[in-house]
């Protein structure tokens, strides 16, 4: 099943069970979503439950909060994370804080889905990653979705939670294919070990995880070592337990992400590892990120701005050699 189909199935199955679940977003009903995620749901559930909104993100999120206050369970699709900036007051000041400020009298069972990241030549205003900002806000659960299986299970569980969830997708993953384990009782808060290894812990998420995975064979061959690759899955809270066990085993840590290096999400993971696991580290950690530049339209400039399988391979091999591998 494709990533976008897995999300669609999760929406469909939960909507068929609970009439309080409504979807809202730009072009999600008639068009079926820019990435075709909500295709077919309008016909099945009608326009009162699959709502085409105006192009007004502040209101899309603000209205969803009000719907949740009113007893519904809204699932929002923001066309891309780039537009979430227009809704940041609603996300940060309302969605994340109303439950706390009301001492729990208000609960917001809602999910905010948004694809992000560098796609193909969409230009500076359509290529950003905002998981660093979103994960810094107390009161939100932030999940980063790499695979169809995780998408399906984590979304179903997110919709059933009574706390607000940010569900980050990546624009280039919608056609990723994977069998879904329907019987799995997947815990969305748990990091996923993609491949076990002994010498280096590599942590990533979203598309960079796949780019890293595709370079892994050559890295291992070149450095004559084995890498443990971890999909972080939940960016807030972080499954530190899984990370800790891995780092204690390997003694080496690499963090790979697409966002700009300044203020990057992974800086937090590296900082935690240095603070908590300093004496278990055999080498200075490596953090591979996007460069501190807006993303250019030109394809070569665009690719020079973010880690690619090629640059990941080169950077890890260099780092490995310096650090005695």
């Amino acid at each position: 099943m494709l990533y976008r189909e897995a999300i669609n199935l999760a929406l469909d199955e939960t909507m068929s069970e609970d009439t309080n679940i409504v979807l809202l977003g730009e072009d999600i009903a008639n068009v079926g979503g820019t990435f075709r995620v909500t295709e077919g749901l309008l016909d099945k559930y009608g326009k009162a439950r699959v709502i085409d909104t105006p192009i007004a993100e502040l209101s899309i999120v603000g209205n969803a909060i009000g719907m949740a206050i009113g007893g519904l369970r809204p699932v929002v699709e923001l066309m891309t994370a780039n537009f979430s900036l227009l809704a940041f007051d609603q996300i940060v000041n309302h969605m994340a804080k109303l439950p706390f400020m009301s001492a729990g009298k208000i609960r917001l069972p809602m999910v905010l889905r948004m694809p992000q990241g560098v796609s193909k030549q969409l230009g500076a205003q359509h290529s950003e990653n905002y998981e660093n900002m979103l994960s810094s806000v107390p009161g939100l659960f932030v999940f980063a979705v790499n695979s169809p299986n995780y998408a399906y299970h984590a979304l179903k569980k997110s919709i059933k939670m009574d706390d607000p969830v940010i569900f980050i997708e990546h624009e280039l993953l919608y056609n990723k294919k994977e069998e879904i384990d329907m019987k799995s009782d997947l815990d969305p808060f748990k990091a996923r070990i993609i491949k076990e290894g002994e010498d280096i812990t590599i942590i990533s998420y979203l598309k960079m995880l796949d780019d890293t995975a595709s370079a892994l064979d050559e890295i291992e061959k070149e450095l004559n070592c084995s890498c443990e690759l971890i999909d972080l899955c939940s960016l807030n809270p972080v499954d530190f337990k899984t990370l800790e066990a891995s780092i204690k085993k390997t003694g080496r840590l690499i963090m790979i992400e697409e966002g700009h290096k300044m203020g990057s999400y992974g800086a937090q993971i590296i900082s935690w590892a240095v603070e908590e696991l300093f004496y278990f580290l055999d080498a200075a950690p490596l953090r591979l990120c996007g460069k501190n530049v807006p993303i250019a339209y030109n394809r070569k400039l665009e690719l020079a701005s973010i880690p690619t399988p090629k640059s990941i391979k080169k950077d890890i091999i260099n780092w490995g050699r310096i650090n005695g591998l």
């Binding site: 999120v61 009000g66 949740a68 519904l72 400020m101």
Partner: peptide, 25 residues
């Protein structure tokens, strides 16, 4: 009674959403 909001105009979209819920229900 749903606040009590300290961002000028910030609660208006919330009220719109709640009105949607009441209509839906």
């Amino acid at each position: 009674f749903y606040g009590g909001d300290a961002i000028v105009g910030g609660h208006i979209p919330n009220a719109v959403g709640c009105a949607y819920a009441r209509k839906y229900q």
